[in-house]
Amino acid sequence: MKKLCVLYLVMVCCSPVIAQDNFRPRLKKWFIPDHSTVQFAGNIGFLAVGPGYKSANQKLEIDILLGYLPQSIGGTNLTTLTVKSSYSPWHIELNDTYEITPLTVGALVGYTPGNQFSIRWPGHYPRGYYWWSTALRPAAFAGGAIERSGSAHRKVKHIKLYYEIGSYDLLLISYIQNRKILRLSDVTNLALGIKMGF
């Protein structure tokens, strides 16, 4: 699994560079990513990396991230594949170099494989015995970002730093049913990340 992760990481980081060598920007094939993302925390791994795509109007972004949590940090090794979509309705240009994204909202689904997890419960459970899937985890978040645009001659043309405050289905249900004991801060957590555009 570790080897697979490293291979994936190398592929992801190289793909935009390869793309630049082989294609002119205007002729970029649809599958060539617009940016690479590295995210810390946010329930998709200690670190998660992967390619990202942007809509033409720059408002919608889709990231496909492979996250890893080592046993030394998480008590158990966990690998998570995440599909994440973010919507940012506004971009505020501060000057030639900096741009602020005041609000980003989004949703994601993380898939964590493992013997102890399942998408559908095995046959020895009656139907509906447990109603949720342990391998798939839907989550939602809100956050913001700041982007620095460099010169067009540079390899990395944009660097975006973002933060997200998010939660997932099981925690939100717990919060809704226990408003006396649980605070919103008990069920939310913070993620930080970098997106590098090429």
Partner: peptide, 21 residues
């Protein structure tokens, strides 16, 4: 903003719902 965000949460970073920390 980051610092403010971090301080607002009591246990700010979570890495996986199934972590055993």
């Amino acid at each position: 903003l980051f610092v403010t965000g971090i301080m607002a949460c009591s246990d700010p970073f979570q890495y996986n719902p199934n972590q055993v920390i």
